[in-house]
Amino acid sequence: MTIKKKSRVTSLAAGRPPTARKPKSISRKATKALINTHHVLEKKKAQAIAKGDRAAEIAIESEIDALGGIEKYQLASLQGQRLDRGGDSSHILMEWLNSMDSTISSSAGAHLKMLEVGALSTKNACSASGFFDVERIDLNSQSDGILQQDFMKRPLPKDDSERFDIISLSLVLNFVPDAMGRGAMLLRTLDFLKQPDTQYSSGLRTFFPSLFMVLPAPCVTNSRYMNESHLETIMNALGYVKAQSKITHKLVYHLWVRKSGVQCPPATFKKTELRPGHSRNNFAVVLSGSSG
């Protein structure tokens, strides 16, 4: 009887369980289809929960699980960030900030703090820039450098030392399944950003404190309930002013600088049709007057 020699582990990856191994690449078409389907199912799930339809909720959860759950969705999102597919969205922010590189570098002890919500990687353009101390969170962390946390349940800052100079919501707001929840998320960013009267240098004051937000372009360009002007009106009511923007056929990028407090009395924005048409999507943001 021969005794088989125990195979020697030649790398850390080889010694990890199969779920930790590098996943296979997903085609561009499959990536888009998976992300879109996941968004639709999450929206239907939220509607079922709102109606108290537990049977429908369970059925939709089964469909999501059959697709691979949040893990497969995140894999598709990571594939979408590959350089041969346009790279990660934060490189646009860095293009805007590079114009003030000398200002940031000369601000001794500035230690600009970024909160990246929905982080998928610790190696994106913002992380590699050296401009920021980055804190990363995500509902389902895929990396040791990303804290598994729900932004909407994150403990509120005790003082300014726990607040941030910039928050990144890159392809996050569109993942919130209902309009009211999106409004609540935008309101909540104000709790975690430094106040607009924070003592920045004149150069830094141009872009900080701020919110970097990225959405699929159709959320703004082809929605029944949203367009660029309406989005800006909502953000202005929250005390944000648009500093930079860019629209491509796939994505819309905005840098919103916090310049004032929330309008008083707080503004209310309902789901109002702005562009009729059967080909429109239903992306919307609802704000029910709230102080913050």
Rank of each mutant, 00 (worst) to 15 (best):
A179R: 09
K6G: 01
M185Y: 14
F131L: 14
L251Y: 14
A284R: 07
E135G: 05
V117S: 09
L193V: 10
F164L: 03
I49T: 04
S202H: 03
S99I: 09
D84Y: 10
A243Y: 05
L156D: 06
Q149V: 07
F269V: 15
S141E: 00
R275N: 15
S25E: 14
A179L: 08
G277I: 10
D138S: 04
E95H: 04
K246A: 11
V241K: 08
P17R: 08
D178T: 14
S127K: 06
L211W: 12
V285R: 07
R275I: 12
E232R: 04
L274N: 12
K45Q: 13
L231N: 09
A108P: 05
E42R: 10
Q195F: 12
K6F: 09
L75I: 15
V285P: 11
E116A: 13
P177T: 01
I58F: 10
K45T: 06
L97N: 07
T189N: 02
I60M: 03
N281K: 00
H230I: 02
Y200G: 03
D65S: 14
N227S: 01
E61C: 13
A179G: 11
Q142E: 11
V214I: 11
K153G: 06
G86P: 00
D165S: 01
N236V: 00
Q79M: 11
H254N: 13
S11P: 08
R21W: 15
A267W: 00
S141N: 08
S89M: 06
A76K: 01
Q195P: 01
F208S: 01
L34Q: 04
L204E: 02
L251P: 03
T103C: 09
T248A: 07
Y240G: 03
A59W: 06
T103L: 12
R21I: 14
K43W: 07
A110F: 08
G118K: 02
T268L: 00
V262I: 15
I137H: 02
L193D: 11
C126W: 03
H38M: 02
L93F: 05
L287W: 01
I247N: 08
S291I: 11
A30H: 15
V134C: 14
L78Q: 12
N124K: 10
P155G: 10
A33V: 12
V172W: 11
I146E: 04
R224E: 00
H38Y: 15
K6S: 12
K113P: 05
D84I: 00
E71K: 09
R16P: 01
K194F: 11
S210Y: 01
K44Q: 13
D138W: 01
Q244V: 00
T198Q: 05
K246I: 02
K123W: 09
M180E: 12
V172L: 13
I60E: 00
E232M: 05
M185R: 08
E135I: 11
G86V: 05
S170H: 07
G183K: 06
A13N: 04
G15V: 09
E57W: 06
